[in-house]
Structure formats: structure tokens, C-alpha cells
Design a binder for these strands. Structure first.
Lengths: 351, 351
DNA sequence: GTGAGGCGTGTGACCGTGCACATGCCCGAG
DNA sequence: CTCGGGCATGTGCACGGTCACACGCCTCAC
């Protein structure tokens, strides 16, 4: 049987792509009978493409399982579409929740996320983590760490990507995004005052965490606004262990009826110490925490605390960052208001 | 003053690189008076380079702050040097700890890490996360999630990158890496039996988590090995909330003196329920957990549990993966042995 | 003396994509 | 009728590295 020269061209189109490599736009173009540029236009949703041409290209793409090459695209556009996260203490509930939300929101927005975990007490580690992210060509940076040190390093290395910090800070409000820590701390403090407490201590977080600083400020503001004698905050390190030892120290004094802990873990340690001393919560001592980690409802007694929406924080963070990157400057500002969750660890003081 | 034509060539070398772009190897080459290939060789530690040439190139690099372009390198080598992490429940202490350790170890080994958080109960989410990582050209994959579903998806999409799962599994031992969950569960169970308990319940994790399954098996193995009557495990979901409600249900029966919980959070919920029922721990009920989260020592009473070294797990995971990628096949196998941490929540049963 | 082989270095192609520009066509205004 | 302009598409180059190959020089063995 003789085939005329002008016979139909589609001889077993399947698998005409080179064996070893993944198919490129040129392979797709050849199979679809168009130029590689047309394929590129389909990929980038260029308006001027005839619907039937577009469909033909899309069909070939699915047939050969075409996957755009991220490296090639990044090379030519000099855009990595990657957001970096510089995080200390990512094993803690709050940061971990935010990171998860950031990742989800970023993926939705077509960005990749790369994380560098650092030891915030080690300047070298901060610089290393930052260098690692920068070497990756990140287009935006999220900082979840004590800012004081990190910001110094940032300034030093003259970072030119937009960045957002996941804590409120007096010093650099333009780049901060956070649950309103001061309002939350005032909420907690007012709750204790309204219950009738007059002698209240505050167990604060590490002094280089702006979050800790803000909560401390909220505490002091509310105390003086309510004409309650202020006490000097105790500086902690976020851990339950520290809460326990701080509690033991405090109990040698015994001139207080309530403690506001800057996070739930330290509150747990405090409760441990209070019970060890043979006291009862909340009869002898009221304790309030901050964060509302999932376990807080099951502490003994269930912990009164201030809930933060870490996930919402992460989402807004990405919105802000992506807005800045695309310079459509969305400015998704407006602080997130925390919520008081009253449980069993607080009550009126016994007289 | 007249300058002869053969005058020295280094006229203000500084800032001869094009203004807008970051310096490339060609810029460095020009300034160092070598070819771009020589610069490339310096970058890749090629042996045949004269020390003085190498030094000259390195000097120029630091001077112009040269940074290799990751995209260009990835494009030509078709190697991304990126490890993907597919993670469910990354807000929990265990997974979060492992992720942090993986990131640190990967960075050390010259790899980047990209994480995709998924909802393990949603097949669509699993596929999305996986596609996201693959689109990135990952060279290795770490799975921290219920494997049953994820592995099905992996098989479906015929993944061709080496992967490691951070849980022990009977079904796919080649890709698993974990603390020896069965040994840990036996440790916990034996501890209860040695204290004199005969009526012991097990609160297990979700049935599609292999970790949960392994701990359940360890429990059952030890029970039957010790001739103690076995009880049907209760399937939970890792949360303290579930532990609380499971505890309330269990307490309507009251034919047991000890409970082995598959993780610390559920143990916390259990303790909450036990106290709500007016019982005392460990006098009336002994409770033992699993993981040793940092807060466990401050539960009331402090929780007896089994400690897992999540960080070591993450490190070994990267060693294994990188070994496989470079096909030097290091095979850093050998299971990690968990450790029993005895605290106040377990004791001899009262009669 | 000559050829093989190693060392130090340079030349040009290539990876997969997007961009600037060019091209041909069609339509409507002057 | 002519010409400007938008549409749909194609051509060639650039991005910043690495790789294969080539080249000149030197050493050493035969």
C-alpha cells in the first residue's frame, strides 16, 4: 500500500519527546505544531491566543505530562517566587502554627516557602540562616524570632527584599504584623483586677522578644491605669521549666494572689510550683496564661488565657508580603484582636 | 603626565560590574583576568587550579560580593539540591522538632529544604502538597504523615525521587526511619506491669498513623508476653481534647488501674478526666504517655512517659537521604532506642 | 628524540524559559 | 485606496552557570 507524500502528519504523536529529559516547551510546541513562544504564552495566560490553539497546546501538555522548569523560569525572570522564613523556636505551638499558615497561604498565592531555623542567641547562626535564605534568592522574608538581634543583622547585610516580622515592635512598625499583644496583655491584667486581685505579678518572656516586651507593657499600662500597685516583671524564657523555678522563687515571698504569665507553658510550670507548695489554684493563687495552646484547656485546673489566632496572622503576613512584592501594595494592615478565654485557673482572691 | 600604553592594568577595579545586575562569573572572570570557566572551577573546588589564581578569583569574589545563582546552576545541572518535607500536623512537638533538625542537617549538607503542610485526611490536599514539591524539582522527600494514604498517592504518581518516612512501618521498611516505637511501647507497658497493674488500657493514635500502629503492637506484644489479659485499644486522634473525652467514657467502666496513652497530649486529657471524676493519680489510676514533650514534666502529676529523640531522627533522616541521592549509599540505619522517663503519674495500684 | 599523559587554562555550546522585536493578517477610519 | 493599529503568532537572543573539548606547556619513559 502506497502512502502519498502529503499524507496526514499525526503519526503516533505519543512519546516523540526525547527519552532521558523531561519535556520542555519546545517539545510541546513541536507536538502541538506551534512555536515555543506560543506555548510560553499559554503558560503565562497571555490574552492574545486563539482558544483552539490554546486548547491544542494544553492537550499536548497533559499528554506528555509537561511540568514547567522552575530553575529556567527563575533564571530568565530573575524571580524565584520563594518566600523565606527565618525562625527561632519553631517547635513551639505559636510559631509552628504561623509557619503552617504561611506555607499554605504562600502556596495558594503561587509562592514557595523555604525555612531556616536559627538559634536566636547565636549571632553566627542568625547570619548563617539569613545567608542561606538569601543565597536562594528569596523575594520576601518572614522573621519569627527575637527581632532585636535579627534586625541588626538584617541592617548589617543590607537586605533588599521586603520583610515582615511576626511580632509587634515599637521600633520598626512598618515591617511588623501581629496580634495586638498590648491589648491582649491588658485584657488578661484587667481580668485579674476585676476579680479583685491587687497583688499581681507578671512572668514575662525573654527581654529580646518584642512580643514579650509588648505583653509586659500591656501589663504595666493596665496596672497603672487601674491604680493597682505595680510589681517588677520577672524575665523568663518561655519554657515550663523556667515557670516552675520562677514559681518556687516567688512562693518564698507569698505577697501576691495572682500571676499573669506571658505564655501558657510558663503558666504550666507556675501551676506545678504552686501545687508543690501545697497551695490551691485558684483559691490561693490565680494564674492566667497567654496563647491558648490546645493543651491549655486540660491543664489542672484548665487554664484561663488569651487566645491568639496564629493562623490568621500567617495568612495576613503572606498577603502583606505578596502585595509588597507585586507592588500593588495591598496593605492588609489592621491588627488582630486577641480574645480572653476564661477557664478554671482564675478566681476571686480569698481573704 | 603621559601614561605608556603598557601601563599597569588595574585601574580602580572596584565596581566595574554592570550596575543593575548581580555580578556573574563572567564579571568575576573579567576582573580577575581569567576565563569564566576558571571561576567556575574555583567554585566547584576543581583540583587543577594554581593556588595564586584561585586566590585572585576568591579575592574578586569577596570584593564584588559574588553570589552564585542557584537557578542557573540548577538549570544546567538539573539538580535542585532541595529536599522536600511533606508534613501533616507540623504544629505538634514531635514533627516540629524533627523538621527543625532536618532543616539544620540539610543546610549543613548543602541542601535546601521546602516544606508542604497537608491535611492528611484530605486526599486532595496530599496530592496538592506533593505536586507542589515535585514542581520544585526536589531531589529527596521526607514524609511526616500517616503513610497509608500518602504512600498510595506516592505510588500513584510514580515518584522517582528517594524518600524517607519518619515513622516505622511494617509495610515499607526500606523507606522508614524511626525511633523504635514497638520497643518504646513495650517499655511503657512493662513499666505498668512491673508496678503490679493487671488491668491496663491503651489509648492509641489514629489508625492510619503507622507510629500509632507500632505503639499499639508493642503494647499488645508486651501484654501477651507477660500473661496479662489484653484489652482492646481505643483509637484516638492525638489531641488532649480526645484524651479528655475518652477518659470520661472509660471512667464509666472503672475496671482498670492504668492507662498507656500513645502520646503526651492525650495523656494530659486523660488526667483531666480522671481528676474530674474525683480520682487521684497515681493512687487510683496510673497514666503513662509517649514522646516526653517539654511540658510533660510539669503536668499534675508530672507525667511518666517514653522519650523520643526527634532531633536525632531528623539528622539520620537527612544522612540517609543525602546518602541515597549521592548514591554513595551510606545507609545510616540502626534504630534509635527510646527511653523510659519515670515521673509521678505512675505507681503501684491500690487494692 | 619522541610520544604519552598530566596540569592549568580557555572556547563554545547548551540547559528551558521569557522578552523584544518582527511578521502577516484583518478591520476600520480618513 | 491607503494606512494605522490590534491580533495571533514566530524568530532569535539573553539569563548564569556547567560540560565537553581543545590547547599549550612540562615531565618522564622508552
Amino acid at each position: 500500500m502506497h502512502m502519498p507524500e502529503f499524507a496526514t502528519k499525526d503519526v503516533t504523536v505519543t512519546e516523540q519527546t526525547p527519552k532521558g529529559r523531561a519535556p520542555s516547551i519546545r517539545d510541546v510546541a513541536r507536538l502541538a505544531g506551534v512555536s515555543h513562544q506560543t506555548v510560553s504564552r499559554v503558560l503565562n495566560h497571555h490574552p492574545s491566543i486563539r482558544p483552539e490553539t490554546k486548547q491544542r497546546v494544553l492537550d499536548v501538555m497533559t499528554e506528555v505530562q509537561y511540568q514547567p522548569n522552575r530553575a529556567a523560569r527563575a533564571l530568565v525572570t530573575s524571580r524565584s517566587r520563594t518566600i523565606g522564613i527565618l525562625s527561632a523556636s519553631s517547635t513551639q505551638y505559636g510559631p509552628a502554627s504561623s509557619i503552617a499558615a504561611i506555607e499554605a497561604a504562600a502556596r495558594e498565592a503561587g509562592y514557595w516557602v523555604s525555612t531556616a531555623n536559627i538559634d536566636a542567641t547565636d549571632d553566627r547562626s542568625i547570619a548563617d540562616g539569613l545567608a542561606h535564605l538569601i543565597a536562594q534568592g528569596i523575594e520576601g522574608l518572614v522573621v519569627i524570632a527575637p527581632q532585636v538581634r535579627v534586625f541588626d543583622t538584617l541592617a548589617e547585610r543590607s537586605i533588599d527584599v521586603p520583610y515582615v516580622s511576626l511580632q509587634s515592635t515599637g521600633r520598626d512598625p512598618e515591617h511588623a504584623l501581629s496580634v495586638d499583644q498590648i491589648a491582649g496583655a491588658r485584657l488578661a491584667t484587667r481580668h485579674l483586677i476585676e476579680l479583685g486581685h491587687r497583688d499581681i505579678y507578671h512572668l514575662a518572656g525573654p527581654q529580646d522578644w518584642i512580643e514579650a516586651e509588648a505583653r509586659m507593657r500591656g501589663f504595666l499600662d493596665e496596672m497603672s491605669a487601674s491604680d493597682v500597685p505595680t510589681t517588677a516583671p520577672i524575665l523568663g524564657d518561655w519554657t515550663a521549666d523556667f515557670g516552675y523555678y520562677a514559681g518556687r522563687e516567688l512562693l518564698t515571698i507569698r505577697d501576691f494572689t495572682a500571676i499573669f504569665s506571658s505564655n501558657d507553658q510558663m503558666a504550666l510550670g507556675l501551676m506545678h510550683a504552686v501545687r508543690d507548695a501545697g497551695l490551691e489554684i485558684p483559691r490561693d493563687v490565680s494564674i492566667i496564661g497567654f496563647d491558648d495552646i490546645p493543651e491549655a484547656a486540660h491543664f489542672w485546673p484548665p487554664l484561663t488565657t488569651v487566645r491568639q489566632d496564629f493562623a490568621e496572622l500567617g495568612r495576613r503576613c503572606v498577603a502583606l508580603l505578596v502585595g509588597t512584592i507585586d507592588s500593588s501594595t495591598l496593605e492588609h494592615r489592621g491588627s488582630i484582636v486577641p480574645e480572653l478565654i476564661v477557664r478554671g485557673s482564675t478566681g476571686a482572691p480569698a481573704f
